[in-house]
């Protein structure tokens, strides 16, 4: 209870302060709408279901992009981290693309894939790939030699060693990579929806900006922020449930 109070009190304080500043007359109420107006807009968006349609569009792109980027990141990371030949082949290619700011590829991707979901999903997957790949690559390369030696004495199956020893030992790294990927995916879904979209939270924010509906803009931003925090927490919750031993390894 005390913990909850400490969590909620600063938020309430901030909302009151915000409400007071908006009504103080020092700032334009249109440019800096009070939280009461923002929540009223949010309620309107809920009643008219536009927020759910935007959420659906953004979430679909986000989940698919995140899944594809993570899947490729993990698979290629497992190979480059454990196999010198793969490392030699892939590393130079990856190192060329890695320093690119992922948002910089969006104009090119739009030309290639059009303004449909394909371009947005590709951009998100592209951005997610790098942190997931890098963490997986480092994770599988860092396995303690004693684990591998013990496993080799206990089983002759190299598939079993890979599946039961090498891969699980990298899971904390992979999870850290995907968490970074989630944060990156949110940036990318927002940026990719700013141009050439007909729905989604990024689209809602850009449209509200054009129509000077600052209250709607802030409402959509709050939803985007809440969605980001919720996704991250859900991911942590799910990974702790699936891999209960992880909580001991991230002490």
């Amino acid at each position: 209870m005390k913990k909850f109070l400490w969590f909620i009190l600063p938020i309430i304080f901030l909302l009151i302060l915000w409400e007071m500043i908006s009504h103080s007359g020092f700032v334009s109420i249109t440019l800096f709408p009070p939280p009461s107006k923002v929540f009223a807009s949010l309620w309107e968006m809920i009643i008219s279901k536009t927020i759910f349609l935007d959420l659906r569009d953004s979430l679909w792109r986000l989940i698919l992009g995140l899944f594809l980027g993570s899947a490729f990141g993990v698979i290629i990371g497992l190979f480059t981290g454990r196999n010198k030949i793969f490392e030699n082949i892939f590393l130079p290619i990856i190192q060329i693309f890695r320093p690119l700011p992922p948002v910089a590829i969006i104009p090119l991707v739009i030309i290639w894939f059009g303004i449909d979901d394909g371009a947005k999903i590709f951009s998100i997957a592209f951005a997610v790939f790098f942190p997931v790949w890098l963490n997986t690559h480092i994770g599988v390369g860092r396995i303690a030699q004693e684990f591998l030696w013990s496993a080799k004495l206990l089983t002759a199956s190299s598939i079993k060693i890979f599946h039961k020893i090498v891969f699980p030992s990298a899971i904390p790294f992979i999870i850290a990579g995907i968490r970074t990927g989630i944060a990156v995916a949110f940036v990318m879904v927002f940026v990719s929806e700013l141009s050439g979209a007909s729905g989604g939270l990024g689209y809602r924010i850009s449209i509200s900006s054009l129509t000077y509906r600052i209250d709607e803009m802030i409402a959509a931003l709050i939803v985007l922020g809440a969605l980001g925090a919720l996704t991250d927490q859900l991911f942590v919750f799910a990974t702790n449930k699936i891999f209960p031993w992880i909580k001991f390894s991230i002490k």
């Binding site: 004693e146 030696w149 013990s150 206990l154 002759a156 039961k164 020893i165 030992s169 899971i171």
Partner: peptide
């Protein structure tokens, strides 16, 4: 079988799964 100072028990397997590891 080999034993190490840092134990080398597989952190992601339970005690019984560790013991069962070599039972192919």
């Amino acid at each position: 079988g080999m034993m190490f100072q840092n134990y080398a028990t597989f952190a992601w397997l339970t005690v019984s799964e560790n013991i069962a590891f070599g039972l192919d």
